[in-house]
Structure formats: C-alpha cells, structure tokens
Simulated assay, not measured.
Amino acid sequence: MRVHEPEVEVTDEQLLRVHTPEHLKVVEDAYKQLNLIRRQVKIDADTVVSPGSELAAKRAAGLVVAAVDDLMSRSVEVKRAFVMVRPPGHHAEADKPQGFCLYNNVLVGVAHAQAVHGIKRVAILDFDVHHGNGDEAIAMTDRSRLYASSHQSPCYPGTGLTPGASGPHKNIWNVPLEPGAGSAEFRAAWTKTLLPAVRRFKPDAIFISAGFDAHAEDPLASVQLSDEDFSWITKEIVSTVGNGRLPIISVLEGGYNVVSLERAVRAHLEALMKA
C-alpha cells in the first residue's frame, strides 16, 4: 500500500465534462458570499459551504482525477486506489449541488478516464445507504456507463425507487432495501441482481461510490450492515466483476459515525489490497 496526497485541484475543464456552467456558478457564488460574510452559506437545506469548503471540494475532485491518472498511466501492477476525501459527491447532479455534495467526484473521475485515457466502458457501483441520484442522472444518458446501487428506501433523496434496470439504455440498476434490512438482503441484492448486471456489461474500469453509512452503527439511516459486509462486497467487486485485473477507483462517500467509519474503511481497504 502507498499513501499519496498530491496537492492538486480540479480544473474547470474537468468539472465541465460533468457539470453545467450554471452549476459551477452557483457554487462559485456561494464561495464569494462566504468570503464577504465570513460565516456559513447555505446552497440548500443540507448543503453548506464554510471556510475551507472551496479548497476541500476542489481538492476532493482533483484527487479523484489524480488517482485516475496514477492508475491509467502506470504499469499494470498498480490496479486499485481508494480516494479518501470529503465532501462526498454522489448526490451532485449535472446542474445542481445537493445532499452535502458540491461536485460529483466519481463522475468527474469517470469522465476524465474516458476523455483522457480512452477508457470505453465504466461501471459505477454505489453501496452508500442513500441513493446516488447524481451518479445515476449523469450516467443515465450515456450507454458507455452503467450505474448499480443498493440503498435504503424510503430515505433521502427519495430516488432510485424502481428495482432492476431502468433508463433509456437500461444501464441503471437499483435495488431498494427496506429500513432495517441487514446482511442477507444486502448480499442478495448484489449477488442476484447488481453484480450479474455489471458482469454482463463487461466494463473496462470500475468506480465505487463507497459510502459506509449503511453500517448498523451509523446515525443517518437504518440498514444494519457490519464491517464484514463491506469487506465482502469489496472482495466480490474485485474478484467476480474485475477478475482481479480491472482498474478500480473507490471514492469515499457517506459515513457519519467516525468510529464505525474507520473500521469499515479499514475492512474495505484490506479487501481491496488482498482480494
């Protein structure tokens, strides 16, 4: 394992592959307002910028781009990266920051991999307890991208309600989990529906929206997963989808109990390295 923290910030060119100019203006206006009033600025009820948010958000997306460059430019022994960043990104749509998310970190990385490194088909796998409406919306119209998610429903943001395949290209796969669902339901969702869909898609690279707020100890929802469940899904992604060969870039999303978050991330990392 190598820990690498380059001082990089995402560029407007990289953001504009995913987000509209209007989206960037909303976020930039919030930064400017913050500099004037020197206190938190609300973009919506859940999404706030505060001192340090601009650097953190631009660095978060920039580090995903850097991870793409690292994996795609190096020799084949470097296959996997975990990008440990905040703020998260999977709720940010093309034209709207929301749900704690200013930029869609994962899709910025996906678009960079496709535009700069010639990656053709990308699978985006999301096991955050909340549905990644931004990931889904940006991927939906592009047949070269597949989005697969398990998430609690009903729960924020109230999307991802249709089980199975949806979208104009049938490249969106959702399995809603009822509140209180546990390991059995989570593993069945991935084993029976989501992982087979990803395998049939035959991706050239895998991106993971790695949220750990489906943990039983997390305060923001009520799915009851354990550290071992996050180890299991990671091993399944590496071995049964990637066959141990595909580049995998995992990006931190949710997780709001810092004690269980540390354990779950450790389980995820160990599986990424050893599987």
Rank of each mutant, 00 (worst) to 15 (best):
A111P: 08
A113Q: 02
Q114M: 14
G118V: 07
G118W: 09
A123N: 05
A123C: 11
L125T: 12
D126Y: 03
H131W: 04
H131T: 07
G134N: 05
G134D: 01
G134R: 10
E136M: 06
A137R: 10
I138C: 02
A139W: 03
T141M: 15
D142N: 15
S144W: 12
R145G: 00
R145Y: 07
A148G: 15
S149Y: 02
S149K: 08
H151T: 06
Y156F: 15
T159D: 03
P168Y: 08
K170W: 13
N171L: 06
W173D: 00
N174F: 01
N174I: 10
E178W: 11
P179T: 13
A184L: 12
A188F: 13
A188G: 00
T193V: 09
L195W: 02
P196A: 04
A197P: 07
A197R: 11
R199V: 15
R200F: 08
P203R: 06
P203V: 09
I208D: 00
S209F: 03
D213V: 05
D213C: 00
E217W: 10
D218E: 03
A221C: 14
S222A: 12
S226H: 09
S226K: 15
D227T: 10
I233T: 05
I237R: 01
I237Q: 07
S239Y: 03
G244K: 01
R245I: 03
L246E: 00
V251F: 01
